[in-house]
């Protein structure tokens, strides 16, 4: 693909702890194309947010990127010096965090915060930056932006604050937006608005979006492709329709089965037995094997590598027929 914006290859993130090094991300690879929305789902602790933070270079010690490469529009960014990486943040990658109530500095007018960010990255005068800030607020759907620009964060509702956060994330026209659970803290009715806003911005500006969430509804609604993460690895990745309708990985199947639907209400929800392993106790072989109904001997010994299955890619031995045939 020539218009790949973000390319992550075999990313590893480690956290040094008292009980040894914990590997939070272990060999994650994916691409996001221009204008594409990649949804990243998984349980809490699966490594979704850490992946996002690794891309934008905000993994704080004791954590560190231990291996792999991250490329942004062809340039490698995971090994940039701190000052150059700072210039990438906000300018080429915008980030939206989970809680809009705490993402904005309560002591500064929102306009000041936007102007500050614009002037950090673009060579604009105070006045031009302010005009741009008003345009941005209008674009993210804040009514009467020329008046609201002088408001303080506490004068905005949660949904409106998330719009301000989005305006801040896109104020320097980034090539990539990382949205880390952007709707989790919001009312359901507001969630849909924010999702369609992010989708529209991605489409209008050709921005690639990495949408991290544990809400399958948000993924189905917003993303083009979806990556299912489990215990620091990508279990399955593919076009959203295919993964939702026809999940291949047993974990993805379990995840889709656990979504309540308004239609088939008589259907029992399927639970995935057990819980995700702690980072200090990831099982040998496939990390999902203790909870997997289809696990066989090989799953307990050998780690499955991603296999292409049509448009999807799945890391599961069930789909690896070659060694079985050769053994026969």
């Amino acid at each position: 693909m020539t218009d790949t914006v973000l390319s992550v290859r075999s990313l590893q993130v480690e956290f040094a702890s008292r009980r040894g090094t914990l590997r939070a991300i272990d060999g994650v690879s994916f691409d996001i194309a221009k204008g594409e929305v990649l949804g990243v789902v998984g349980e809490s602790g699966a490594g979704k947010s850490v992946t996002g933070l690794a891309v934008i270079g905000l993994i704080d010690p004791p954590g560190r990127i231990a291996g792999g490469e991250i490329h942004l529009a062809g340039t490698r960014i995971d090994n940039l010096p701190p000052e150059e990486m700072r210039r990438v943040r906000g300018k080429r990658i915008g980030m939206i965090f989970q809680d809009p109530l705490t993402s904005l500095n309560p002591l500064y007018k929102i306009g000041d915060q936007i102007v500050e960010t614009i002037r950090t990255h673009l060579n604009l005068s105070e006045l031009a930056a302010r005009r741009r800030a008003i345009d941005l607020l209008a674009e993210v759907g804040i009514p009467a932006p020329e008046k609201r620009i002088d408001g303080y964060p506490h004068e905005f509702s949660g949904g409106m604050r998330q719009r301000v956060v989005i305006a801040l994330a896109i104020c320097a026209e980034p090539e990539l937006i990382i949205a880390d659970e952007p709707t989790t803290a919001l009312d359901v009715s507001v969630q849909a608005q924010i999702i369609s806003l992010i989708k529209r911005l991605g489409r209008d500006h050709g921005t690639a979006v990495m949408l991290v969430t544990h809400d399958m509804g948000v993924i189905a609604e917003a993303s083009d492709r979806v990556a299912v993460m489990y215990a620091g690895r990508v279990a399955e990745i593919g076009p959203v329709q295919a993964v939702v309708k026809n999940p291949l990985h047993p974990y993805a199947k379990g995840l889709m089965g656990a979504i309540p639907t308004l239609a088939g209400e008589d259907k029992r929800l399927v639970q995935i037995p057990g819980s995700m392993p702690r980072l200090s106790a990831i099982p040998r072989g496939c990390s999902f094997n203790p909870r997997c109904a289809f696990a066989f001997d090989r799953c307990r010994v050998e780690r499955p590598e991603p296999l292409a299955q049509g448009a999807q890619s799945v890391a599961c031995h069930l789909y690896d027929n070659a060694p079985a045939e050769s053994a026969a």
């Binding site: 915008g94 500050e116 950090t120 801040l168």
Partner: peptide, 29 residues
């Protein structure tokens, strides 16, 4: 450690602006 400092870093503000513009003023209250 607050979210708005993390967000300020994600916005690519300079260390100076984060420390003395954002963190110090909130500290002074």
């Amino acid at each position: 450690r607050t979210d708005y400092i993390r967000f300020a870093r994600a916005r690519g503000l300079t260390t100076r602006a984060i420390h003395f513009g954002h963190a110090l003023r909130n500290t002074l209250v």
